[in-house]
Simulated assay, not measured.
Amino acid sequence: MVPSDIAFRIIFIFQTGVGGLGNSVLLCYYMFTYLSGHRLKPIDLLISHLALVNNGVLFSKGIPQTMAAFGINNFLDDTGCKLVIYLHRVARSLSLFTTSSLSGFQAITINCKSTRCVNFKAKMPKYIVPSCFLYWAFSLLIYGRSPLNIKGPRESRNATEGNEYIYCSFHVSGDTLVYTIMTTLHDLIHVGIMVWTSGFMVLILYRHHQETHYIHQNNFTPGGAPETRAIQTILLLVSIFVSFYMINSIMIGYMSFFKPSRWFVHSSAFLASCFPACSPFVLIMSDSQVLRYCVAFCQRIKVPILTFALG
């Protein structure tokens, strides 16, 4: 047995399990908040939607890739391959949209000073849910063509075909390049929006921190000033997303036209799931209310678990 295969088995199980748990904690927290009669803030709606689609990315990529790492390559037929990969690409697109929307909403919130901006901010909560539904429809439509290039492992044995997946085959057709360019431009627009708005927020928060530096020197707060913590969270989320997205996109482009090694495919799958697995913990650690909820929940289930284990 190859040591790299054993390592990837452990990595995929850990990544999918821990990442899914983190996103589920965020979803449960906001669902509990809503069911308790509290009104969710607009940013809460975006974060809960991000957690939902991130779980979609993790499960549609992590579970099949874990089974492939265990050597089970023919567990999906042609229809199953088309469905799983289609759902993964739709969830990935929605994760990109939600991350850029979250960054844009935060930028508007931080720099909202004029009357027109304040009025727009007041109306934004009305547009968040419809926008999410519209983008769901848009993503389902734009990636509707992608299953045409996917075949089950039994339907294709041609070694010259692209292999973006171990458990399925990716067939390169004549118009694949045009379709790839269109979807790449679509993704890069959202990446550009996210990077620009995040950079703008960092600049605004940095200037504000410099103006109030003397206050923070006289009134020290544990863990740094609120502006500093916000900058760190924004920079961390953006750097994680952009870094993994760009590297994974290059690897996918290579695998679309060349036959990669098994190790290369596993590495690409790992990078594709890094942001969905890491982002919930960045958001949990940056929100004291969610963190307190997690601590209280762990304390409540600690006694029943110990009683069950000892009994």
Rank of each mutant, 00 (worst) to 15 (best):
P260I: 02
C81I: 14
F270G: 00
A7E: 08
I13D: 01
L26T: 05
A309H: 13
Y206D: 11
S279C: 11
P64A: 03
L76W: 12
Y86L: 14
I85M: 07
K126C: 07
I189W: 14
Y127M: 08
N74I: 12
F32E: 08
D78W: 03
D78T: 13
D187W: 13
G224Q: 11
F200E: 12
T184S: 13
L45F: 03
I108T: 11
G104H: 03
L40K: 06
S4M: 09
F297D: 01
S93V: 04
V178G: 00
V290Q: 03
S261K: 00
V53E: 10
V282D: 01
H171S: 06
L203I: 10
I181K: 01
L306K: 10
L235P: 00
A225H: 02
P147R: 01
Q289F: 00
I13L: 14
N218V: 05
I63R: 07
Q210R: 15
G144P: 04
S24V: 09
K123G: 15
Y127K: 04
F97L: 05
G199W: 03
V2Y: 11
V242E: 04
V25T: 05
N74S: 14
A159W: 14
Y245S: 13
R9E: 08
C81P: 09
S267C: 06
C274N: 10
H266F: 15
S173A: 10
I193C: 13
P222R: 12
P153Y: 09
P304R: 03
